[in-house]
Computed example of a mutant assay.
Amino acid sequence: MAKIHATALVDPKAQIDEGVEIGPYAVIGPQVRIGAGTRIGPHTVVEGRTTIGRDNHIYQFASIGAMPQDMSHGGEVTELVIGDRNTIREFCTFNTGTFKEQGVTRVGSDNWIMAYVHLAHDVVVGDHCVLANNATLAGHVHVGDWATIGGLTGVHQFVHIGAHAMIGFQGHVAQDVAPYMTVDGNPLTVRAVNLTGLRRRGFSNERIGIIRQMHKLLFRDGLTLEQSVQQIEALKADQAADTVADVQLMLDFLAAAKRGLVR
């Protein structure tokens, strides 16, 4: 059975699975669904049409599923969907989506989200991401799997951050960040390939070598983006399947980029 503190206010319409723990003075709304093994800390508010998966730990004083901070939002019922095994620390604020996109703000699984992180409406965060303290993501931001966003970083609306990218401390991110890259500074600049992150995830020397070639073509050879894309496409020839997949991930990201690349 769920373990709900006597002072918590849980709407009888909320769907609470077995093994859920809800701490003192938490407030759970009628459209909320919480998966088995998830822990909700004291004084946390979970409201709106919010679905939370299994084995998450949401710490005290978080605001999960509040209406979007969008002046055009007319009170439509939109959603927040959170996956499994996420750690969400104190004072985080996650808003529901708007119908400017699909009406859903979405957080994947196995993410480490530190205190005071804000996810605005229609944000999409993948799996295995790290968002450090006070990272602030504006509306419609998309974050790929395994990305790391440094503390006190602000991300402009509609920006896309590629998989395995790393953004340094206090970044001002107003353009898209390519996969596999480390960016830092003010103005933001691509510094290098995120070698530490890739090695921790078991990337082989061959895969890292191809990623380094893509870095050189995009950011060091003085090519136009079109020229870089053509030469990156050519890297797929006679490569192993995982290396081809790495190149294709980059090509797909570049094809979808709309705000220009941080270079």
Rank of each mutant, 00 (worst) to 15 (best):
183 V>N: 12
89 R>H: 03
134 N>G: 03
92 C>I: 09
258 K>V: 02
118 H>C: 08
85 R>I: 05
111 N>D: 12
71 M>W: 12
138 A>L: 14
174 A>E: 14
31 Q>K: 15
128 H>S: 07
253 F>V: 11
146 W>R: 14
24 P>W: 01
166 M>V: 14
83 G>F: 13
14 A>C: 11
219 F>P: 00
198 L>E: 00
30 P>N: 02
235 L>K: 06
42 P>D: 05
27 V>Y: 11
253 F>N: 12
254 L>R: 00
13 K>H: 10
159 V>G: 05
227 Q>M: 03
192 A>D: 11
171 G>F: 07
123 V>M: 04
194 N>G: 07
157 Q>H: 13
174 A>W: 06
40 I>E: 04
246 D>M: 13
65 G>H: 09
114 M>A: 07
134 N>F: 11
3 K>F: 13
251 L>F: 06
11 D>N: 15
67 M>N: 13
206 E>S: 13
156 H>K: 13
96 T>Y: 05
251 L>W: 03
170 Q>N: 08
101 E>A: 08
97 G>I: 00
97 G>K: 00
88 I>T: 12
89 R>E: 05
247 V>I: 13
126 G>M: 15
43 H>W: 10
72 S>E: 12
170 Q>Y: 01
111 N>P: 13
62 A>K: 01
51 T>L: 11
81 V>Y: 05
253 F>M: 12
110 D>E: 09
227 Q>S: 06
114 M>Q: 09
21 E>C: 13
127 D>V: 10
93 T>R: 14
65 G>A: 04
244 V>T: 11
114 M>T: 10
95 N>A: 08
40 I>G: 10
2 A>Y: 01
10 V>N: 06
252 D>R: 04
46 V>H: 05
242 D>E: 13
87 T>A: 13
142 H>P: 09
148 T>W: 14
107 V>R: 11
23 G>S: 02
83 G>W: 10
24 P>T: 05
97 G>E: 01
255 A>S: 15
144 G>C: 04
83 G>T: 12
77 V>K: 09
11 D>R: 13
252 D>Q: 13
251 L>C: 07
193 V>I: 15
8 A>V: 02
179 P>Q: 05
222 G>Q: 06
47 E>Q: 15
114 M>H: 06
6 A>S: 08
73 H>L: 11
147 A>W: 14
206 E>W: 07
204 S>D: 10
90 E>K: 02
142 H>N: 11
21 E>D: 12
168 G>P: 09
223 L>A: 03
123 V>L: 01
